[in-house]
Computed example of a mutant assay.
Amino acid sequence: MMRTKIALALAVLMALGGWAYQARFRHEALPKPHPAATLATAEVVKTDLSDYWTETGTVGFRRQRTLRGAAAGVVTWLPKSGSVVTRGRTLFRVNDRPVTLFYGSTPMFRDIATVGLVGRDVRVLADNLRALGYRIGPQPADATFTESLKAAVQRWQTDRETRPADGVVKLGDFLVLPGKVRVGATTARLGDDATGDVMAVSDQAKAVSAEIDASRTDDLRAGQKVGITLPDGKSTTGTVDSVSTAVRTEQNEAPKVQIVITASGLGALTSADVEVRFTGTTVRGVLAVPVGALLALSGGGYGVQLDRGPLTAVKVGLFADGMVQVSGQGLAAGVKVVTTS
């Protein structure tokens, strides 16, 4: 009898242990619940948006132009590339006679030899000799080649070692430019005809030139700021100096116009390609959300999902820098919308 009770108790214990083991096994085998998924959100902001486009520009110097002699002769001396020529200095020599740089706006167009000769070219001669320190005597209002001005020319010719120093200024003895120039590439070689292209000159100030589609000229104006990315990846800013009115057209290409940009952060660069970033359309004080917040609606158009709120249809405007202009019911600055993380 006692053995029967002991056997029955052992059987009950074994049954209970098996049930507990199975229950524990079933509990451990079940996957653990994941925490509730969280959605990324972003605030609707009130801001200014601008779209951009980029073009390749070339670093160079402002107001580049090509010089040629005004009178026939042989080129006998040329300056070094990169040198700067100022008022009264020699640009090049023709038949070993110096061609001098004078400042002004009226080019020399004849010999100045006869006392009493009147004209704007005489005014350029008188103004430059006076600026160089020569006494030219009283000058009539109508710019006349006086005896005293001719005597000043003789002194100038003597100092320049121009022979003969007779007070006669021959066509081509000076070239008139707006100011000092930097010498670029020399086109001519010693012995070439001086009436052909002799050399390129420019201002000392550096600039970036670029071509843009003629259709974009309405987006640009002188004084507008642009971004410039240099070859080493560094960035600087520039200012639109001029937008050409001349349109260049080539087959199978959109019409182009050239623009010139001044920039002070070009370092030692004198010739290199850079990336220029232009601002196009700008909208101010608009509501905007990240582009990732837009949802395509089945019926067409776009919507945004308000955080803990409904899906709201929106009207989209300008896209810029990962943001998009939006308007719609329930949207205001500070409202949160669901977006991609």
Rank of each mutant, 00 (worst) to 15 (best):
A37C: 05
E55S: 08
T47M: 05
V84R: 09
V44D: 00
L39S: 11
V84D: 09
K32L: 14
H27L: 13
A71D: 10
F61W: 11
H34D: 14
D51S: 11
K46V: 06
S83I: 10
K80T: 12
D51L: 00
L39N: 08
R62N: 09
R68N: 15
R26I: 11
R63I: 05
R62C: 06
A42S: 15
R63A: 15
R87Q: 14
R65S: 15
G73R: 00
H27M: 10
S50G: 11
R26M: 12
A36L: 14
A29C: 03
T54R: 10
R65V: 10
V45I: 15
V75D: 01
G57F: 02
G57H: 00
P35A: 13
R87Y: 04
V85T: 09
G60F: 02
V44Q: 02
E28M: 12
R68Y: 08
T58R: 12
S50A: 15
V85W: 05
L39E: 12
D48Q: 06
F61H: 12
P79S: 02
T76K: 03
K46G: 03
G73M: 07
T86N: 12
R87C: 06
A37R: 08
S50F: 05
Q64R: 11
R63Q: 13
R26P: 00
A36T: 15
P33L: 07
W53A: 06
P31M: 00
V84F: 07
R63V: 01
T41R: 08
Y52P: 00
R65F: 02
T76P: 03
R68D: 05
S50I: 01
E43D: 15
P31L: 01
H34M: 13
T58N: 09
V75W: 00
R26T: 14
R26L: 15
V75A: 03
A71I: 06
T41Q: 06
G57E: 02
K46S: 13
V45G: 01
K46D: 12
L30D: 10
L67M: 08
E43G: 15
S83C: 06
T66M: 13
H27Q: 14
A40S: 11
L78V: 14
R26H: 11
L30M: 11
R87D: 09
R68L: 10
V84L: 04
V74D: 11
A29F: 01
A37L: 08
S50H: 05
W53L: 11
L39D: 05
Y52E: 11
A70K: 03
F61A: 02
R65T: 15
Y52S: 08
G57S: 11
R62E: 10
H27Y: 12
V85L: 11
A36I: 13
H34E: 14
W77H: 07
A40L: 04
K46C: 11
V45P: 01
V85P: 01
V59M: 04
D48M: 04
A40W: 01
A70S: 14
Q64I: 08
E43S: 15
A70Q: 13
L67S: 03
P31N: 03
A71V: 13
D51M: 01
G73P: 01
A70W: 00
L49R: 03
